[in-house]
Nucleic acid binder design. Structure first.
Lengths: 188, 188
DNA sequence: GTCTATATGCAGATAGAC
DNA sequence: GTCTATCTGCATATAGAC
């Protein structure tokens, strides 16, 4: 089931994850994905912006899904989030500090430069925040509390990935895991 | 007191802050900085990597200095950090979501691509974490506690800047401010 | 120290054949 | 749907005059 369109999006995600939007070339994407050269503008007539936007959206959906699945396995939200962040730490280390999702770099680079990509990033982060928020709501937090916490969890994880990649160590993410567990244990 | 070298570094910081490392061209830096065209490779013989590395280092030192100054104004660390993050939120809004420092985007893009820039990012983040850690140590936390919290504060703020830029709103940073205050108030 | 001119290569994008 | 060929423009970097 070779699917050039999907291959292109997935390769784009993993390349932009490592080197951002501007650092990733279309030729590079075609080469790495193994997709037919001539098919790029056939599937994505709007070019690079469209490819990046769709890659970001797909990555957001996939990440939100994974978050839901992992959080569902453990009842207590503090422990669930803690363990989830530890899993990210392991994943980032296993990828030799290449992983982390394409959002962070792409979102920073394009926040004020491309309306289309920015909209995609907003939707992706909204998906992710919602996944955390739902878990907190299910365990009895108020709407406002759940929202504030979900934003902070998302921010701390994104920042933790950034620091872990920079220091080539999972330790920053593990520190984030510990502190988030403490934060989520307040008032229990 | 026109100083081409300094002008170039400062312009590099503010351009890479908006569009990252690969999205910023040397021509653009020269044009925006007003520095003499022919002086770029005179001051920075190693080219773009050197310019980015020095801009990152300078930005790290400056940021750490600002953190120390702001935190020193308020005795209670929870309130001090809270107010500091609110100030960032205001600053990011005032800049129309361009601000946030060159580190986030540059660090993500270059973590596994340029040894030299990566080393500069590590030093910059270490400076910043140290500024937070000192405040926590001064208020009686243990070394381990202060370290873990400082990392988490840095991560949450970086992530908060990312989200605030993406959503074109200071609210994510304000949510981070609230939660960090709660986290730092544990056990008081 | 600063200039202009330029080398070399790749970027994103398009045209038109098959 | 996929190919090759090509357009235009900018990227980083260098050479050599002043």
């Amino acid at each position: 089931m070779s699917n050039p369109r999907e291959d292109i999006l997935q390769t784009t995600s993993s390349l932009m994850e490592k080197q951002g939007y501007h650092g990733t070339g279309l030729n590079e994407i075609v080469r790495e994905s193994g997709a037919p050269k001539g098919s790029l503008y056939h599937y994505f007539p709007d070019g690079k912006e469209q490819i990046a936007s769709e890659a970001v959206l797909e990555s957001g959906r996939l990440t939100a899904e994974r978050i839901r699945a992992e959080l569902a396995a453990i009842a207590d939200p503090a422990t669930a989030v803690h363990d989830f962040v530890l899993a990210i730490a392991h994943h980032v280390e296993a990828s030799r500090f290449a992983a982390g999702g394409p959002l962070t770099a792409v979102a920073m680079e394009t926040a004020t430069k491309s309306e289309r990509i920015n909209a995609a990033c907003r939707e992706a982060y909204a998906d992710i925040e919602t996944a955390f928020r739902e878990k907190l709501l299910a365990s009895g937090r108020s709407q406002a509390q759940a929202m504030g916490l979900a934003i902070c969890i998302t921010a701390a994880i994104e920042g933790g990935i950034l620091l872990s990649r920079t220091f080539h160590s999972g330790d920053p993410l593990r520190a984030v895991a510990t502190q988030l567990r403490a934060l989520l244990s307040i008032g229990e």
